[in-house]
Design a protein around this nucleic acid. Structure first.
Length: 474
RNA sequence: GGUCCCAUCGUCUAGUGGCCCAGGACACCACCCUCUCAAGGUGGAGACACGGGUUCAAACCCCGUUGGGACCA
């Protein structure tokens, strides 16, 4: 039987990196086994899920290079793949359960439940549902109905222990005493997560359910539902959570955690994939860089860690820098264009291509190239604090001598510029560092820049001299 | 409170009884290279939560403690 695995996000508009990691592992498992990967949108909990929110998740996945064989946008034999469009399926399943006596109507109001729960805790008893409506007499039920009480549908747990077999964690036993009757259909007729997910995993013929560990304890209840429906459960694999530096589950509290944000910062999808794959999984004892194809080839659920993994953005940045350096110049230039555009800097693609070798090993994020190269594309240079100090210290005379040395050049190449700068510095009795820094300041407006002679060559003779002359006058 | 899961350097991890006085990577420190910033090179510091067992031998197996987390609301 071939593998069918899925990713089933609740669309909040953005894809969380934790969700991305879950999606990645499930996707890798499907691709590794030549199986089918399904995307399903779980939106029954939300009051309003906009089409844009669903769109956002799809875009983020696509950007990461995670594609799906069935789901929104591509269809498939078991659709629709958006839960809010499958309400009839859940209602039918609920009716079947009710018809076979595996579910019953519960008229308890939230306040009553809360009250009884508190009392149970006070008496040292478990706080779960006490099963009160399970054995209502016909009269009682008629009374409640006559009162117009809203009713939820509860699953009647069979009172047996449940053993969950997990591909990552092994076996876990859940005693019957902890499995009380839970709601599967709310009084407004919408299904709970437990029902919808269980029904869909069955209807969509999922062979493997790979998801976050936060759903681990809901597994026995989903297995119970499946069993009552006469369906056999899929294989389960629960992934460790991704946590923040404080070891709490990663969330917005930790700053921006959406895939979209990382994309906008200039992280590369290949770096994200590589980093995320290594968060809770390893290929062997030494491999750090793995391509998407390499991951597909080697991915293995048995090598997934059991521990929650802390998200380390510094390591991600380092890895991104690696991929930036590895990228062909041509491609990197093209990928940088949108960042210049967004910053309002008009970057000539030809010039950018020539400048890329100067910055590719100096940036970790694509967005950083803008500040580093802005002096090449903008006419107005506004020197920063440190640049002003450098120029002040060097003095007009020295700057003028540099102008003279550069003016005298026959050819405008990095090598000749290099020599001229040295000559000027030497004549002034300055070290290379001391002699070049004021030039850097005058031309780039900063104390930090790509290599100087090469930068001046790209800037061109006229613009370089103009900036130096301006500095010599001020 | 109950149930379940988890526990190796600050972080991600390798490790499935002897190859481990614990290996790699990020970060950190020092030095080298060097026009700034990077990148790169070399070296360094840094961990088996604790306590009991089992065994000739335990990071690895068992029990307990402690600590984290998830879920039940």
């Amino acid at each position: 039987m071939s593998v069918r695995s899925r990713f089933a996000p609740a669309p909040s508009g953005e894809l969380h990196v934790g969700g991305a990691r879950t999606a990645l592992f499930s996707w890798l498992f499907a691709r590794h086994t030549d199986g089918t990967f399904v995307l399903r949108i779980e939106d029954t909990d939300r009051d309003r899920v906009t089409p844009e929110a669903i769109e956002g998740v799809q875009e983020a996945l696509a950007w990461l290079g995670i594609d799906w064989d069935e789901g929104p946008g591509v269809g498939g034999d078991y659709g629709p793949y958006i839960q809010s469009e499958r309400m009839e399926t859940y209602r039918a399943a609920a009716e079947r359960l009710q018809g076979s006596g595996r579910a019953y109507l519960c008229y308890c109001a939230p306040e009553e439940l809360e009250e009884r729960r508190k009392r149970a805790i006070k008496r040292g008893q478990p706080p779960g549902y006490d099963g009160r409506c399970r054995n209502l007499s016909d009269e009682e039920r008629a009374t409640f109905e006559a009162e117009g009480r809203p009713a939820a549908l509860r699953f009647a747990t069979p009172g047996t222990d449940v053993t969950v077999r997990d591909l990552i964690r092994g076996e876990a036993h859940f005693p019957a005493s902890d499995l009380n009757d839970f709601v599967i259909l709310r009084s407004d007729g919408t299904p709970t997560y437990l029902l919808a997910a269980a029904v869909d995993d069955h209807e969509m013929k999922m062979s493997h359910v790979i998801r976050g560990e936060d759903l681990f304890s809901s597994t026995p209840r989903q297995m119970l539902i499946l069993e009552a429906l006469g369906a056999s459960p899929p294989e389960y694999a629960h992934l460790p959570l991704i946590v923040g530096p404080d070891r709490q589950p990663l969330s917005k509290r930790h700053g921006s955690v959406s895939v979209e944000w990382f994309r906008d910062q200039g992280f590369l999808p290949e770096a994200m994939i590589n980093y995320l794959a290594l968060l809770g999984w390893s290929l062997d004892e030494h491999t750090t860089f793995v391509t998407r194809d390499g991951l597909v080839e080697h991915f293995d659920l048995t090598r997934v860690s059991h521990n929650p993994a802390a998200f380390d953005i510094e390591k991600l940045e380092w890895m991104n820098g690696h991929y930036v350096r590895e990228m062909p110049v041509e491609e990197l230039a093209e990928r940088l264009v949108p960042f210049f555009e967004r910053a309002g800097v008009e970057a000539d693609l030809e010039l950018l291509r020539e400048a890329v070798p100067l910055v590719n090993e100096r940036i970790k994020l694509l967005s950083e190239a803008v500040e580093m190269l802005r002096f090449l594309f903008e006419e107005e240079i506004v020197p920063n604090e440190k640049a002003r100090k450098l120029l002040e210290k060097a003095g007009r005379e020295y700057v003028a001598s540099v102008v003279a040395a550069l003016e005298a050049l026959d050819d405008w190449t990095a090598e000749s510029i290099h020599r001229a700068l040295d000559t000027a510095a030497e004549a002034a009795g300055l070290s290379r560092t001391k002699g070049w820094q004021p030039v850097r300041a005058a031309v780039t407006g900063s104390n930090i820049s790509p290599p100087l002679p090469e930068s001046l060559e790209l800037l061109g003779r006229e613009r370089t001299l103009a900036r130096l002359r301006a500095a010599a006058l001020s």
